[in-house]
């Protein structure tokens, strides 16, 4: 039982480390801000996720007490990571991307960062 747990924990740590490394490598290798944004999303999901699962197994098997902090960390990460990515993307688009470079919305109004519409027509605050 302990051996299986040890193997599992080590494997998870190595996999997580590899994905973390890959995320950083992608950040260096890719050549455009929008593309670069894809790399860190990997490091946070499988990279951090693997370490957290390994930590849970380790504490449960070897130190005999179950912790749930890892679940909370995962939850907080899942809430904050997309928002950060969205902020970075929006900031980049405002600085460097013209509206004509984007595909049209296909709807009545343009993209939120470029088009102003009155409060009355705005069902949700999209800014």
């Amino acid at each position: 039982m302990e051996l299986i747990a040890e193997i599992l924990v080590s494997a998870l740590l190595v996999i997580a480390g590899l994905f973390g490394l890959l995320g950083s490598w992608g950040l260096v290798k890719l050549d455009d801000t929008m593309r670069r944004l894809h790399a860190p999303t990997k490091a946070t999901t499988l990279g951090v996720g693997g370490v957290l699962i390994a930590s849970m197994i380790y504490f449960a098997v070897f130190l005999d007490h179950l912790t749930f902090h890892e679940l909370l960390i995962t939850a907080f990460l899942f809430i904050t990571a997309p928002i950060t990515a969205n902020f970075v993307a929006k900031a980049h688009m405002h600085r460097d991307i013209k509206e004509r470079d984007l595909p049209p919305t296909g709807g009545q109004y343009g993209w939120a960062g470029y088009d102003e519409i009155g409060d009355a027509e705005q069902p949700i605050d999209t800014k």
């Binding site: 894809h38 809430i79 997309p82 969205n86 343009g110 993209w111 519409i117």
Partner: peptide
């Protein structure tokens, strides 16, 4: 939007001003 960003390979970038389309 969060799901699209978290599944790697796609990042949500912007919402249409009337919230009818997602970029």
């Amino acid at each position: 939007a969060g799901t699209i960003t978290m599944t790697p390979g796609t990042v949500t970038s912007m919402l249409a001003a009337d919230a009818s389309h997602l970029l």
